[in-house]
């Protein structure tokens, strides 16, 4: 039931947004076509501006992951994280999530496959997936697009938010799904 509602919602969210905005423009009697093309012009430059930081981040993360350094990093961190009573299966997720969205998605799928999609580990990783972001990547791309070099407290704030998201995910999942 709920799945169906969500399915419909995610199917109709984009069409609704587009239809609503264009209808509103028509109602206000503006030239929607002109407005659209006017706004769309910026798409090209905006997309091009993010290329340098895009390349920088993807190359660095690719090198780190492919070499096996990521696995080393994860196993080095496991004992520290286990002190906080965090199941070690979830550690790769915690480390991967701020770095790479597709990587984290991969870990989540892998956890769902090997522990079962109804296991606490898989559900916790799913909640983590939804409650945090690829912080490093977002910062690099967004700041890179406007050539900001001094990011100040952005990384600290982002990582604090991620940490709170992870801890909440672990405890709330335990509360909801733990037996």
């Amino acid at each position: 039931m709920l799945l169906k509602i969500i399915d419909i919602l995610s199917k109709f969210a984009i069409p609704f947004m587009i239809v609503a905005i264009i209808s509103f423009g028509m109602k206000r009697k503006i030239n929607v076509y002109m407005s659209f093309t006017d706004g769309a012009k910026e798409g090209f430059t905006t997309a091009l501006r993010i290329i340098p930081s895009f390349v920088a981040m993807l190359v660095a993360i690719g090198v780190f992951r492919e070499s096996g350094a990521m696995d080393l990093f994860i196993s080095a961190f496991s004992p520290i994280i286990e002190i906080f009573n965090i199941p070690k299966e979830i550690v790769p997720m915690i480390i991967m999530r701020p770095l790479s969205g597709s990587g984290a998605q991969g870990i989540m799928s892998e956890l769902a496959a090997s522990f079962g999609p109804e296991s606490l580990v898989a559900r916790t990783s799913a909640v983590m997936m939804g409650s945090s972001e690829t912080t490093l990547y977002v910062l690099a791309i967004y700041f890179g697009s406007i050539s900001i070099k001094k990011q100040r407290h952005a990384l600290a704030a982002g990582l604090i938010a991620d940490a709170v998201g992870f801890i909440s995910a672990i405890y709330i999942s335990k509360l909801f799904f733990g037996t």
Partner: peptide, 13 residues
């Protein structure tokens, strides 16, 4: 381009 176009409509209207 598509979303910035849509956003411009929302802005102009």
């Amino acid at each position: 381009a598509m979303w910035l176009g849509i956003m411009k409509i929302a802005e102009d209207s």
